[in-house]
């Protein structure tokens, strides 16, 4: 599904968090929102999801500009947000429709993908932070959403799990060609996953630059091409000069 934001602004009690933000994403595109904390990335994602509808401007999903939640949208929050009274398996099947057997079947498949098979009957309190976040990721991916919104989904995970789950995300994307908006502050992650990286800066957050990453997938982590992009982005963010250490 296509996604279009036109002049989206959001003000909280007189303080503007996001100002005049416009992008458009083609169906199946992976867009990265990169920026320092507090520049309004989560705010934007909530506006797109429909959880927040007090924004100004226009957000259209497949041409539909209603501010309601569209249940073809999946959201992976910054925190796991598991329902503590449900075991892992039922947390994953929570948003699935259809008969029980196929739901369970599918949930188990995704739990295996996130490396949690055998943990189906555990309750959230019995999980480590990283495990809980992986359950949350499985819960969002299992519904194969057509638009997938991710708010720093991997930031709480260790480096290895992170890479594994980035690959899982790409697998799911290959199969379902979801349109993805990925909020992150990890440049390498954005470079590895995204077709386009939008750099946000300032408070209120505004678009600073857009990078189109033309590199074919699967990309090579730490490869030459990505390193060049990274250097360019760091330059844009004024983080690439040694003076910044002393000033």
């Amino acid at each position: 599904m296509s996604l279009k934001l036109k002049n989206v602004s959001r003000t909280f009690d007189g303080i503007t968090a996001v100002k005049n933000f416009s992008i458009s994403a083609e169906p199946g595109e992976i867009i990265g929102l990169l920026g320092t904390s507090g520049c309004g990335k989560s705010t934007l994602l909530r506006a797109i999801s429909g959880l927040d509808n007090d924004y100004d401007g226009e957000i259209s999903i497949n041409g539909n500009t209603s501010k309601e939640v569209d249940d073809r949208t999946g959201f992976i929050f910054q925190e796991p947000r598991l329902l503590p009274w449900l075991p892992v398996l039922e947390n994953v099947t929570f948003g699935l429709k259809g008969n029980k057997e196929t739901k369970v079947q599918r949930a188990k498949e995704f739990l295996e993908n996130v490396g949690l098979s055998g943990k189906e009957q555990l309750y959230p309190r019995q999980l480590s932070g990283g495990m809980a976040q992986r359950v949350a990721i499985a819960r969002a991916l299992v519904t194969s959403p057509e638009i997938l919104l991710l708010d720093e989904p991997f930031s709480a995970l260790d480096a290895f799990t992170k890479m594994q789950l980035q690959d899982l995300l790409l697998d799911v994307w290959h199969t379902y060609k979801s349109t993805v908006v990925l909020v992150t502050h990890d440049i390498d992650e954005a470079l590895y996953l995204c077709d386009r990286i939008v750099v946000l800066r300032g408070q209120p957050g505004q678009i600073d630059t857009e990078f189109v990453i033309k590199e074919e997938r699967p990309r090579q982590r730490g490869g030459q091409k990505l390193a060049e992009y990274k250097s360019e982005i760091l330059d844009r963010l004024d983080l690439n000069n040694t003076h910044s250490y002393t000033s």
Partner: peptide
């Protein structure tokens, strides 16, 4: 509120939100 948002993302209506999230959470 964060758990209620999870329910909303899955398109639950008010009654479903009450049964599936608010009641168990306030038990």
């Amino acid at each position: 509120r964060k758990l209620i948002e999870v329910g909303k993302m899955y398109g639950l209506n008010t009654i479903q939100l009450i049964i599936r999230i608010i009641l168990p959470a306030s038990l």
